[in-house]
Amino acid sequence: MTAVEHAPAAANRGWFNSKIFAKLAIRLGAFAAFAGILIYFALTARGFTSSYNLINVVEQSTILGFLAFAMTVVFIGTGTDVQKGGIDLSIAANAGLCAAVYAVMMREGYGNFVAIPAAVGTGMVIGFFNGLAVVTLKIMPLLGTLAVMNIAAGLELTLTENTVVPVQSDLMNVLAFGRFLGVSTLAWCLIIGSALLIWAIHFSRIGLRLYAVGGHIEAARAAGIRTGAYIYGAYIFSGFMAGVASILIVSRLSSSTPGTGLMLLPILAAALLGTVFSRRFIPTIGGTLLAALFIGFLANGFQLLGISSYWVSGVQGALILLVVTVTSFAKKH
């Protein structure tokens, strides 16, 4: 209560336009908190700043980042109200299914040239079903993608029979262990993937229209944008990213492993935390990238400091609550 009531009063007493000031303070605060935590880890956790460790964290964040990008694109295209607007609960289960498809096809002797398109194609088909549920059948996104999540998770289990499917291939060795200019392939994937997406979402017509559809669907439709196609596109793209991420997951673990579906919560956390790094507190690719790295550094720092990993999920939860409280306050005032 006190936090909510006192804060606006303090902002009103500011020397200049309190609205801009409050927003600026919160944005800078988010960056400062991120930087502060990094500096704290650098000073206290031994080995945190070593280049090996830093690259390791970036690698670990690649998979989370790719899946969180997918969620971000769905958020952008369907509005940020997670309850009434859009969400894709099936992303993590979908990635698990794609990983299973890829691993099983490799085991059956199909090469990468067949298995990779099959995995990515599977992801896109699942994405299409999400679009079908949300756009054509007009089911609430929360529900439609929940049903699709169940189907994807069930199919993954039937394919793998809930076991680890080991995979060996040259491409995977390149992905998991290869290096270029001293940076590992996985890290390059994150760098190139984010650059491409930032261009597509923030510097292209498609991205602008996607924001229009998510921001105000009636206005977008009146302006002549085919809103249904964009929402379909967002969900299919989300499936595509799940497929791509699944190849990275399999490479990193050298197998398809049950439990990929559990990544849903960190994915949501990254996509939601990302909004605090943007000027208008909306989902952006850059913000999500920072948030995914932040979550990675947080887990890594905890590990190096010897703090139990059991705290990680609680800290993520508290961060989400903090971020949402602060941004909703900033939007209002």
Partner: peptide
């Protein structure tokens, strides 16, 4: 009090609840 929408509020509690259980049962 904090005006968080129910989806996000209870999502946060879901994360925190997981930690509480892991901490009180050695993981």
């Amino acid at each position: 009090k904090l005006k968080i929408n129910p989806f996000l509020a209870t999502l946060g509690v879901l994360f925190i609840g997981k930690s509480i259980q892991q901490l009180s049962t050695q993981g």
